[in-house]
Simulated assay, not measured.
Amino acid sequence: MTTSTTPASAGTRAGAEVRLESLRRSYGAVPALDGLDLVLHPGELVALLGPSGCGKTTALRLVAGLEDADSGRVVVGGRDVTRLPASRRDMGMVFQAYSLFPHMTSLENVAFGLRLRGQAARERHRRAGEVLELVGLSAQADRYPHQMSGGQQQRVALARALAIQPTVLLLDEPLSALDAKVRAQLRDEIRRVQLEVGITTLFVTHDQEEALAVADRVGVMNSGRLEQVGSPTDVYHRPATPFVAEFVGLSNKLPATVADGSAEVLGVRLPLVDPRAEPGAALAVVRPESVGLTPAEGDGPLVGTVVATSFLGAVSRVRVDLGPVGTVLAQLPTAEAGRFAPGARARIGLRPEPVVVVRPHE
């Protein structure tokens, strides 16, 4: 799948276009990439998202030159770099492991790539200082890795990748080794720096929240192929395939009858993401935030028993047992969810938002 839609803000950015054209890579008889086509616009951050083994890291390694493609091309700024070694591709990489030199200070680690390029000591120290300031670590310039937190070390790794002023920035699960709070903070920091520098960036992650929060566009991968590429809003609210609908975010699968371009779900007529869906029995993929709850007494087709409530801060998730239909998950403001303690009776309501349908065997 190829997309060429330029983000609205791209005109204000610098950066190089990156094109992945029909990339294929197999390990023995197992295909890791099966004809991957993707365009990264200048200055854009694209996140590749998918389960383990979907091919997202392989794609990044082919772009970096750390592995060779079986076929296809990698084109950066109009130049075919497919057969160039990694050292000649002008790319900065940040890995999950910080990979800092333990005997070097932050400043020395950041300046290391400049030293390899033969830059004079005074100039490389000036440049390293600038990039440390960019990532908010000027005060830690003289510290060694063991004197810094994991988040600070990863910022140093980011600064080191940026110091050489690469054409493309590649991020391979850079936040997965950090705890949740630091991960969220550094995620936002990476986005700030990326926008400020204006560098074209490929971000590989298995974390859905991470991808949706930082990317201009998200590419969802499955078995070596792109299932969908689009804005975070489109990928979440208008998934192109059943796999995307189920992989990105939480969802309920509710019995549905498809007819005339819509689906009847629990007695409610809902629009379809794809009005061309074949008529007949199906399962509708309904987001928890599209499920409403009201207190109820007695029985009825939409009335069930609250099984559990999970507090998530500003929102809470309430699980309701609807008997033969199964369990339905609703996401509500926490103040509203407080009315639904375990054992309480609740009536389900569905908001008229477009749904994806899958057949029972899918």
Rank of each mutant, 00 (worst) to 15 (best):
P279W: 08
P279M: 07
P279I: 07
P279C: 10
G280H: 07
G280W: 07
G280T: 06
A281K: 11
A282T: 00
A284K: 07
A284P: 12
V285F: 08
V286F: 11
V286S: 11
V286D: 14
R287M: 10
R287L: 10
R287N: 13
P288H: 06
E289S: 09
E289V: 03
S290A: 15
S290Q: 13
S290V: 01
G292H: 10
G292D: 13
G292C: 02
G292S: 13
T294C: 08
T294V: 14
P295W: 00
A296N: 08
A296C: 07
A296H: 04
E297R: 14
D299W: 10
D299E: 11
G300Y: 05
G300C: 06
G300Q: 06
P301E: 00
L302H: 09
L302F: 00
V303H: 07
V303C: 03
V303L: 04
V303D: 04
G304A: 10
G304R: 07
G304W: 10
G304F: 11
V306W: 14
V307K: 11
A308R: 13
S310K: 03
F311M: 08
L312Y: 10
G313L: 09
G313E: 03
A314D: 15
V315K: 13
V318S: 08
R319E: 15
V320P: 14
V320L: 15
V320D: 12
V320G: 13
D321I: 08
D321V: 06
D321W: 12
D321F: 12
L322T: 04
G323Y: 13
V325W: 07
V325Q: 09
G326A: 07
T327P: 01
T327M: 06
T327G: 01
T327H: 12
V328S: 08
V328M: 05
V328E: 04
L329P: 04
A330I: 12
A330T: 10
A330M: 08
Q331P: 09
Q331A: 11
Q331Y: 08
L332S: 11
L332W: 12
L332G: 05
L332R: 08
P333C: 02
P333N: 03
P333I: 01
P333T: 01
T334L: 06
E336L: 00
E336P: 00
A337H: 12
A337K: 09
A337D: 04
G338W: 00
G338P: 02
R339F: 01
R339C: 00
F340G: 03
A341G: 02
A341K: 03
P342A: 09
P342S: 06
P342L: 13
G343Y: 12
A344E: 12
A344R: 12
R345G: 10
R345S: 15
A346L: 09
R347L: 04
R347D: 03
R347Q: 14
R347F: 05
I348Q: 08
G349H: 14
G349I: 04
L350V: 09
L350P: 14
R351A: 15
P352L: 06
E353P: 03
P354Q: 06
P354F: 06
